[in-house]
């Protein structure tokens, strides 16, 4: 009787240890280094031969678990691929071969973890990029109740001179503050979050513009072929090109 009990206890302990180890290994263990460029190219080309990747330019860590890899395609496009450490492996999550800037909301709740990433064809000779956080002005009068939505337009500059074709920048602190209060406000519009997961989407959006070294400030002309190829991911969004006329 006693033996049986001991055996049972031993098995229970072993099972708990086993589950603990697997859980640690899957979710908590520190990430490995990203394998190498060759392996990354192979993995993408296996899934998406149409991506036509010629060369990976670099492996950039945004943090320990999030990597982006800028690349060049065989028909001279500059693109971006995004990778995440998940379940103890580097998983490929999204690709864009005609890469205009994208925002990666690594933790969607926390704007401080959001990055804007880009890779522009070097022939554009860009001097700097400007990124925008914009909310359009608006008003409404509902049963005599006025509502005025002021215009919001914040910007940051990213210098490109003498640098590589690709780069990234973190969302600045004042954007974070605005986004956090706006998100909280949107969440409080629905008084009963228990019974409905549907929140109205945020009213702000992100944009970009570029200025070349010769002063040219319209949409960058290279590459000439604009046949991009991309896959979606809810946390990596393309950001909008902002026309000069839209700025205030």
């Amino acid at each position: 009787m006693l033996k049986k009990k001991k055996l049972f206890l031993l098995i229970a302990v072993l099972i708990i240890l086993g589950i603990g180890t697997i859980g640690y290994w899957l979710f908590l263990a520190p990430p490995d280094n990203f394998p190498n460029k060759k392996a990354a190219i192979n993995e993408i080309m296996d899934k998406f031969p149409e991506a036509n990747i010629k060369d990976m330019q670099d492996i950039i860590y945004l943090d320990k678990k999030h990597v982006y890899i800028p690349f060049i395609t065989k028909n001279d496009s500059y693109g971006l691929s995004f990778w995440q450490w998940q379940k103890h492996e580097w998983q490929f999550i999204s690709i864009d071969t005609g890469a205009t800037p994208r925002i990666w909301k690594i933790d969607p709740e926390n704007p401080a973890s959001h990055f804007i990433v880009w890779n522009f064809h070097p022939e554009n000779n860009l001097h700097y990029l400007t990124f925008y956080l914009i909310k359009d002005r608006g008003y409404s009068i509902n049963e005599g109740k006025h509502n005025y939505q002021p215009s919001v337009q914040m910007d940051i500059k990213a210098e490109l001179e003498g640098k590589t074709s690709f780069g990234h920048t973190r969302i600045p602190l004042d954007w974070c503050e605005f986004m956090l209060s706006e998100n909280k406000l949107m969440a409080s519009i629905n008084p009963d979050p228990l019974f409905s997961n549907f929140f109205p989407p945020a009213q702000y959006y992100f944009g970009w513009r570029s200025v070349a070294k010769d002063g040219y400030d319209d949409y960058p002309p290279f590459p000439k072929n604009t046949n991009g190829f991309g896959t979606g991911d809810s946390l990596i969004e393309q950001i909008r090109y902002i026309d000069k006329q839209e700025l205030e």
Binding site: G138, H146, N147, Y148, S151
Partner: peptide
């Protein structure tokens, strides 16, 4: 004070 949303909008 009261809000004049339409006026403010137009003023800009």
């Amino acid at each position: 004070e009261p809000i004049y949303s339409d006026e403010w909008y137009r003023e800009t």
